[in-house]
């Protein structure tokens, strides 16, 4: 009798604990879920919906013509700037800064793992420093260095050594702007993805290299391909994702460096700037949203490739 009562009590206590645990868990995750949904998920969905409408911020949005597809049809058939400049620029830039910066970061991380801890600390600090300077620094300092008048430091070096006859308008000439954007972005691309890969290389089990040497691995390159990279796949993937995000996040620099949106003759115009141009300058929100959707799809595509290369196969 006593036993049955105890059991009942214990059962009830268990149920109560379980309920309390559920409430506690909900409270723990709720703030993040709310903020995450409001400012990340809903904007993405909202973008998708807006892309099927006409919306100028003043009138209520209405469904676009052609079953709502008008914006997309316009984007793919009428926007000549988009196909002639914006899309090619975006791909050139994203490929150079994304995969380019990524390979650069990996090579640096690998080399750093081959030297002693003390110098490694200082050299990695120097390499990481440009990634934390912030947009203001990038704009001010690089604009000053590449400035087209004689106060521009790089121009003054070129002039002094007679390598050029007159100052090059680096930031205003279509020929130079995109290259300089890539250069500056690569300079600041060694961010946390680089640090993750450095940690990854350092954590590879050393005995594997000795085993590899016995098993007939012939050179450093083979070592990297067959041992280092497979062993640090998770960090490689994290680094890749960060590189992709970084390459799309630094899209502001064309406008920041040249001081104009659109950039001179669309030479440094990236999708991000095109969205801003239509959204915040021309107030064609529906059209801007359609471009955003395309951008999100492009990022997703890059990401898929990264997961295919380094993701764990299920």
């Amino acid at each position: 009798m006593q036993n049955a009562q105890d059991l009942e009590l214990l059962k009830r206590q268990r149920a109560k604990d379980k309920r309390n645990d559920k409430i506690a868990t909900a409270l723990l995750v709720l703030p993040y879920i709310l903020l995450f949904s409001t400012f990340i998920i809903i904007p993405v969905l909202f973008s998708f919906i807006l892309s099927f409408t006409y919306f100028d911020l003043i009138q209520t949005p209405r469904i676009a013509d052609l079953y709502g597809l008008y914006n997309y049809v316009m984007l793919f058939t009428q926007d000549s700037n988009f196909f002639k400049y914006v899309l090619p620029n975006t791909f050139t830039f994203a490929l150079a800064v994304g995969p380019g910066g990524y390979i650069f970061a990996f090579v640096m991380a690998w080399m750093l793992s081959q030297i002693q801890a003390k110098p490694r600390k200082y050299i990695s600090l120097a390499l990481y420093t440009p990634s934390m300077v912030g947009p203001l620094f990038i704009t001010v300092v690089w604009r000053a260095l590449f400035s087209g008048d004689t106060s521009g430091y790089i121009n003054s070096i070129l002039l002094k050594n007679d390598w050029v006859d007159e100052a090059i308008q680096f930031l205003q000439s279509p020929e130079w702007l995109l290259r300089i954007m890539i250069f500056v972005s690569l300079w600041s691309s060694m961010g946390i993805g680089f640090l993750a890969m450095l940690a990854g290389v350092l954590n590879v089990d050393k005995t594997l290299y000795e085993a590899g040497a016995v098993d007939g691995i012939k050179n450093r390159f083979q070592e990297i391909i067959y041992i280092t990279i497979p062993q640090m796949k998770p960090q490689m993937l994290f680094g890749a994702v960060m590189a992709i995000v970084g390459s799309f996040n630094t899209g502001y620099i064309g406008v920041a460096l040249s001081g104009a949106n659109p950039t001179p003759q669309y030479s440094g115009q990236l999708i991000i700037n095109h969205i801003e141009d239509y959204g915040f300058i021309r107030y064609e929100m529906g059209y801007a949203a359609a471009i955003s959707v395309l951008l999100l799809l492009i990022i997703l595509l890059f990401n898929k490739v990264a997961y295919m290369l380094f993701g764990e196969k299920d």
Binding site: I42, P43, V44, F46, S47, L50, V245, F248, N249, G251, Y252, I272, I275, E276, G279, F280, M285, A288, A289, S292, L295, L296, I299
Partner: peptide, 8 residues
């Protein structure tokens, strides 16, 4: 990429 959905 936050700027991609700056408008919504």
């Amino acid at each position: 990429v936050a700027i991609a959905v700056a408008i919504p």
